[in-house]
Design a protein around this nucleic acid. Structure first.
Length: 499
DNA sequence: ATGTAC
């Protein structure tokens, strides 16, 4: 059996592309990394493995603690981490969701081909850049009243439908149908609401982007057909989150947990994993506030979608309906969700592995930098995709392609119905700025790859240079091989707008 | 990710 010696820890390959951390006494459950050796070389370079081990030490964790192939170091909990906790006896942890609650990505289709947009990239990008606010700070597509903000937090994409920013089909093509009914706007602080009020319909900064792409490869004709994707088709990817509002919700509740449960926080291997006991008032407040921030992020992506549709209609002198700019799907990257999963009862508690009878338990599934990947037949997959599986969108870097996958048949058994969310960083933003210059990256992409990049900040381009990311081909290759998310199509960038 | 710190 293969082993891999990372700094201070040995991993054992228990089956192809599944690596288990050496178990110590403090770990309550096994910890696994889905990767090949190329990706493991990258993953071992920061604190990812140490953080994954810490997650496996947390009380109430359901086996196993997981790291997806794009995993890298995060706040307390790896980005690319998946961990489930029993919803009665377990915990819910803001650090295991992340600061950017419901950061996520959606794909909007068009009936344009690459020929239709060739030569007009600059015109299109300039128009989109004007229509969609981006970068740090305030300014959104729409100024909203306090009443509107409350409604958006409460009802998510349903509010967008009511206000004419979405059609009913948009709602059906979002995870959770674009609305978490457990949202509790009263659990969101005034400070968080103030930060979000003038940011509704804005891209933000960092790795967030708006990208025009073309479909270059189709690997699975039947599923591509069900998804309405075809070679040479132009599509738009929108990647953003809950801006200052989600960030503030995360900060607020991390502080409250540390204050109200100091002993519990002290006992954790890393206080950044601070967690509230399931069933406590604080856990319920955080869950309600997090769900409201989730709804806010969906509204954010929907308002941007509305602006993108209007801009395309303007540039091509027609309507977005005539351009068939329908939403393929919208997936969440940073969330915790109460989901029912089939698990075995073991000496450690509950586990995805075992023999004998299985029981169904409600779990808080934390996916941080990970995508839900429900398989064909699952009732939570929209009717339009029920027979093939949930669409999964995996953006590569701005110089690489992106992939559309479908939920794989092994996702529930292996990963609580989850897979990767992107290429995954190779280095910190600080290091990226030392290694790259924004202007040079921008010129190279244009001259070598015919990708037109426009950004609010040159520093962001350096931080997001293609070289700071892992090889997305390797990431989706592991997902496909493990049958947790299977390849459907590949896309390549035409133009990219960054915050 | 983020009005890049309490």
């Amino acid at each position: 059996m293969n082993t891999f010696d990372a700094d201070g820890v040995t991993l054992r390959e228990v089956e192809d592309d599944v690596w288990e951390l050496e178990r110590d006494d403090e770990m309550r459950v096994p910890a696994r990394v889905f990767a090949n050796e190329t990706l493991l070389e990258d993953i071992q370079n920061d604190k990812t493995l140490e953080q994954l081990r810490n997650v496996a030490c947390m009380p109430g964790v359901v086996a196993p603690a997981l790291c997806m192939p794009d995993g890298h170091q995060g706040y307390g909990f790896p980005v690319g981490g998946v961990a489930a906790f029993d919803a009665e006896d377990g915990y819910i942890s803001p650090g295991a969701v992340g600061f950017d609650i419901n950061c996520g990505v959606r794909m909007v289709k068009t009936n344009l081909t690459y020929e239709d947009v060739r030569g007009r990239e600059e015109e299109l990008v300039d128009a989109l850049f004007d229509a969609v606010p981006c970068g740090l700070g305030g300014g959104g597509v729409h100024d909203v009243s306090h009443t509107d903000l409350e409604a958006a937090l409460e009802r998510g994409v349903d509010w967008c439908v009511e206000e004419g920013y979405a059609v009913r089909e948009d709602r059906l093509h979002c995870e959770d149908e674009g609305r978490r009914p457990d949202a509790d706007p009263s659990a969101v602080s005034k400070k968080a609401k103030d930060r979000g009020a003038n940011q509704m319909g804005s891209l933000g900064s960092g790795n967030h982007f708006l990208e025009i792409q073309r479909v270059t490869d189709v690997y699975d004709d039947e599923t591509a057909d069900a998804f309405g994707l075809d070679e040479d088709q132009v599509v738009v990817l929108i990647h953003c989150g809950s801006r200052g509002l989600g960030h503030q919700v995360c900060s607020d509740y991390l502080r409250r947990i540390e204050q109200e449960y100091p002993d519990l926080t002290e006992d954790l291997p890393d206080k950044d994993l601070a967690a509230a006991p399931a069933g406590s008032e604080l856990a319920d407040d955080y869950y309600g506030a997090m769900c409201a921030a989730i709804n806010f992020a969906w509204v954010n992506r929907q308002l941007i979608t509305h602006a993108v549709r209007e801009t395309f209609a303007d540039v091509f002198d027609t309507s977005w309906q005539a351009l068939e700019m329908d939403l393929l799907y919208d997936v969440a990257h940073n969330i915790a969700k109460k989901e029912a999963h089939d698990v075995y009862v073991t000496d450690d508690g509950y586990s995805l592995d075992g023999d004998g009878g299985r029981v169904q338990r409600d779990l808080y599934v934390h996916r941080k930098g990970a995508t839900r990947a429900f398989p064909a037949g699952h009732p939570d997959v929209p009717t339009a995709y029920r027979e093939v599986g949930q669409p999964i969108i995996i953006p590569g870097s701005m110089g690489a392609g992106s992939y559309i996958l479908k939920g794989g048949s092994q996702s529930l058994a292996r990963s609580f119905g989850s897979t990767a969310h992107g290429a995954g960083r190779l280095m910190s933003r600080t290091q990226a700025k030392r290694e790259y210059g924004g202007g040079e990256v921008q010129t190279d992409l244009r001259e070598q790859n015919e990708i037109y990049v426009k950004a609010a900040s040159g520093e962001t381009i350096a931080e997001e240079a293609p070289g700071v990311y892992k090889d997305v081909d390797e990431v989706v290759g592991v997902s496909d091989a493990l049958d947790i998310g299977d390849l459907v199509v590949r896309t390549f960038p035409i133009a990219n707008i960054k915050g």
